[in-house]
Design a protein around this nucleic acid. Structure first.
Lengths: 192, 192
DNA sequence: GTCTATACATCGATAGAC
DNA sequence: GTCTATCGATGTATAGAC
């Protein structure tokens, strides 16, 4: 019942799920990393499914909260997109394991949690799409297919934890500076 | 021993692995979709691991073959990158299930196959990086961090099957036209 | 080439002692 | 709150009949 212990279990689970995938981590594995027996886990959590749901939905809700904050602000499209990029970087640094787990294992949520996750995901994409559409209407955004930009932008941002896994803190500063550049302005010089 | 039957098993497995993930598909599931019993599968394949290795390495080798072809050609950086993008789109259309499986389940390969996969992946990224470096040297490419561009570019291309899952053939034509635009030239107009 | 039958490991989860 | 012991389901894979 100790909430600290519960959080400890969830953090360890997130690490293991990232490393091996949800289905490849047994309750015995997880317990072993905490130096207890599998049966003892059930004093703190009700099921393996519950652990996954907490990990995934916690992160998904944090993303939703941030875009709901940014969306109505009086900022240019570039500024809004920059804020979203910086938020993805910040969450990637803080919740690397949970993010990997969300991306790879949300499909293993049971029905109710999976629906809730999908709802949050769709809401996030809708707000993101609306920001881009606004940019197009205001003439700030190039004439490219909106769905393609939404897809390529969000795919890159969602998968930042892969990049982060192999990098140093110096390189994180480069990421904060150059990722917006690469995503927003492309990489081919206009006059070539 | 019938090679057609073996291919049929592998194709069905790729579909199921994409839908549910490697570990969530049992040999009984797989057999059921082929209207036979699990034991009968072993007349055609030696293990579940073998199926995964065939699926993943087949695709990985196809990507490697293509970049080895493009790399030494006498083309501009833009042309080479366009060729790579079009190849990713083509493979996504032809091998959607296998591609999803490669991305999500390569971690479940056994040691030897996993090492081979990593070798192919690293070789691909190295060639891709070299093409970008060449573009920078020739002044065709913006001054952005190379690793960040390699990452965001390849992440998007690798994950195209997610986009394709929900789209029509009309939209595929838009993808072929606008994905290079979005990736190479960005989305923010220069004068805004 | 597919079947039935089954071996044997491991899974998530529970009961009840301490 | 952790333990031992264990249940019942399910996993991959094999043996041998047809």
């Amino acid at each position: 019942m100790n909430p600290n212990r519960k959080q400890e279990i969830i953090n360890t689970a997130a690490f293991l799920f990232k490393e091996k995938g949800f289905n490849a981590v047994s309750m015995r594995d997880l317990a072993g990393h905490l130096h207890i027996k599998a049966a003892s886990l059930y004093n703190h959590i009700s099921s393996k499914q519950e652990i996954l749901a907490v990990i995934v939905l916690q992160i998904a809700e944090e993303f939703t909260a941030h875009i709901n904050l940014i969306y109505p602000e009086d900022l240019s499209t570039t500024e809004k997109l920059e804020a979203i990029i910086q938020n993805h970087i910040a969450i990637t640094l803080k919740y690397t394991n949970e993010l990997a787990c969300m991306n790879n294992d949300w499909m293993h949520l049971e029905a109710n949690s999976k629906n809730e996750y999908r709802r949050l995901l769709n809401a996030y994409e809708a707000k993101f799409r609306a920001i881009l559409q606004e940019g197009k209407d205001k003439g700030e955004v190039e004439d490219v297919d909106l769905e393609i930009v939404v897809f390529s932008f969000l795919t890159t941002l969602r998968t930042l934890y892969v990049w982060y896994a192999k990098k140093s803190s110096v390189e994180v500063e480069t990421l904060k500076k150059d990722l917006p550049k690469a995503l927003l302005h492309g990489l081919i010089l206009k006059d070539s």
